[in-house]
């Protein structure tokens, strides 16, 4: 790349509560930055065109497709990934419910579902099944047929209503 605007530039990003300073090419995708520059490979890439949702991360607490953003856009922002969802080795209630109720098979789409569901439950702590299905309809799973994912999100919602502090992760 020869255009001056394409020359590497420094960025400072907070990921799961940890500050990272790196110099990156402007074209570097946020998903690649997280996965390959920071080694946070829990964020998965399924389509690189914003449809499958596997790469969903929290951007200043809003779920975004990290494959549709550049790392430089994260300069000065907070990113939350799957690696920051548990409290140490204590699973977030969503992670626990996914595990217990087989809300995953291969696990490739799972981080995107978990990040999306966490944001959804923060806004709607007592959702109906249909509301859960609509909230998750932007994330694709090819293994489960969704039923166990929906059940896991409803179960996690129930537990979070009983013990709301259990859902506080690091990001």
């Amino acid at each position: 790349m020869t255009e001056p605007s394409a020359s590497p530039r420094p960025i400072r990003v907070s990921v799961n509560g940890v500050d990272h300073e790196r110099t990156v090419e402007p074209r570097l995708l946020l998903s690649d930055f997280l996965r390959h520059d920071l080694g946070l490979t829990g964020t998965h890439v399924g389509c690189e065109h914003g449809v499958c949702g596997a790469c969903t991360v929290a951007f200043d607490d809003q779920p975004v497709r990290s494959c549709l953003m550049f790392a430089v856009q994260a300069d000065g922002h907070r990113i939350g990934t799957i690696e920051g969802m548990a409290d140490g080795e204590t699973l977030h209630p969503l992670q626990m419910a996914f595990w217990e109720l087989s809300g995953l098979q291969c696990g490739f789409c799972t981080p995107g579902f978990l990040i999306t569901a966490r944001d959804f439950l923060a806004r709607n702590p007592d959702p109906s099944e249909q509301e859960v299905r609509e909230a998750l309809s932007g994330n694709l799973c090819r293994c489960t047929g969704y039923q166990s994912i929906v059940a896991a999100v409803l179960e996690a919602a129930r537990r979070l209503r009983q013990a709301p502090l259990a859902g506080l992760g690091k990001s």
Binding site: R35, L40, T41, G42, T43, H44, V45, T81, I82, E83, M85, A86, L91, Q95, M96, F98, W99, E100, L101, S102, L104, C106, G107, F108, T110, P111, L114
Partner: peptide, 20 residues
């Protein structure tokens, strides 16, 4: 184990898929 053991790393984002 609350669920199949092999799913535990996956809900934590600690899988080892090819591109990882």
């Amino acid at each position: 184990s609350p669920g199949p053991e092999e799913l535990h790393p996956l809900v934590l984002g600690r899988g080892h898929f090819l591109d990882d």
